[in-house]
């Protein structure tokens, strides 16, 4: 199967790889925002995850430990954000921006001496099953992180929809005063949600440095965290739409690269902007129809919670 010299099977397989970092970061941010905290530091948490994962994987030789370190690094960054916004009650937007700047700076410091090194490879999970025609590359041909990201989307959806923990989390994001009055610990819930978001962003960042590129370069996340933030909003805070949004973005990214390679007569600059434009366009159209309630923006999103009694 090929279209204009582009193999569709390869395209789908590679778009799943290209989408994974953004999807991970977005699903984590979705949980944090569902709990009512707006963390604009996704980019910073991703890049910290990228360098922590890279260092741990190179030093131990184990990519699994690398991803664990990345999750821890992202979660620590999120904990810092939680401390500032939930305990010191700082402004969430400013703190998030600062977190991004801090993450970018700290990662280049940590990354001194790791330029140009190749990390240990992350193996494919199903080995030779990946050689089957069509389903092989698409279904079985990936490493475990790709499957993890899909499991996280499904798991996040199920937990938010069906479990008590998910209900409490949504309640805290919806009306923190009421949740407090009922005796739920707003700050604890938000801190945990933020740390989950940080861990996911960290793994997403490590996926870039350990699998997708794979090496360390400064500022290598290149705006992926911001796209993840945008996807959460345009996905109306719905996990399956996050998956859709991430796949559209990844798909168009891969496609435009192939189109460039195939020498299509469209200026490169336009092709490079296509993923951003098309992803946002699709999600805007999907979310444009109804009011705020139907879109599911948590009503307490970004508001400072201050227990008054």
């Amino acid at each position: 199967m090929s279209l204009g010299g582009i193999d569709l099977v390869v395209l789908i397989a590679s778009l799943m790889v290209a989408s994974t970092p953004i999807m991970l970061a977005a699903i984590g941010e979705l949980v944090a925002e569902k709990a009512g905290s707006l963390n604009l530091g996704v980019e910073g948490m991703m890049i910290i995850g990228a360098i922590c994962g890279f260092i741990a994987a190179v030093e131990t030789g184990s990519p699994v430990l690398g991803f664990v370190a990345a999750a821890a690094g992202g979660a620590v960054m999120a904990l810092l954000f939680a401390f500032m916004t939930q305990v010191l009650l700082s402004n969430q937007v400013a703190t998030g921006l600062a977190l991004t700047l801090f993450g970018l700076g700290l990662s280049s410091l940590l990354g001194q001496g790791y330029n140009g090194i190749k990390p240990p490879p992350t193996p494919k999970l199903f080995g030779s099953l990946g050689d089957l025609p069509v389903v092989g590359p698409i279904v079985f041909g990936h490493n475990w992180v790709v499957y993890l990201s899909l499991i996280l989307v499904a798991g996040t959806w199920a937990v938010l929809k069906y479990t008590r923990a998910g209900l409490v989390l949504r309640a805290v994001g919806e009306n923190h005063d009421a949740a407090h009055a009922l005796g739920y610990r707003v700050r604890t819930v938000r801190t945990l949600a933020l740390m989950y978001g940080g861990a996911c962003a960290g793994v997403g960042g490590a996926y870039l440095s350990l699998v997708r590129v794979p090496q360390w370069t400064e500022g290598m996340t290149a705006g992926a965290g911001w796209i993840a933030l945008a996807i959460v909003v345009f996905a109306s805070w719905k996990p399956w739409r996050v998956l859709l949004g991430a796949y559209i973005f990844g798909g168009v990214t891969v496609l435009q690269l192939r189109l460039q390679a195939a020498g299509i007569a469209i200026p490169v600059q336009i092709l490079s902007t296509a993923p951003y434009l098309i992803t946002i366009l699709v999600l805007v159209i999907m979310s444009a129809r109804r009011g705020r309630a139907a879109q599911g923006a948590p009503a307490s999103l970004g508001r400072v919670f201050h227990a008054s009694h």
Partner: peptide, 20 residues
């Protein structure tokens, strides 16, 4: 029963009850 209702507008009745 609170004066300013401790309810969550975006959740349904059963979910609101479960939270309490």
């Amino acid at each position: 029963v609170f004066q300013h209702f401790s309810l969550f507008e975006a959740l349904n009745v059963a979910e609101n009850v479960a939270l309490g």
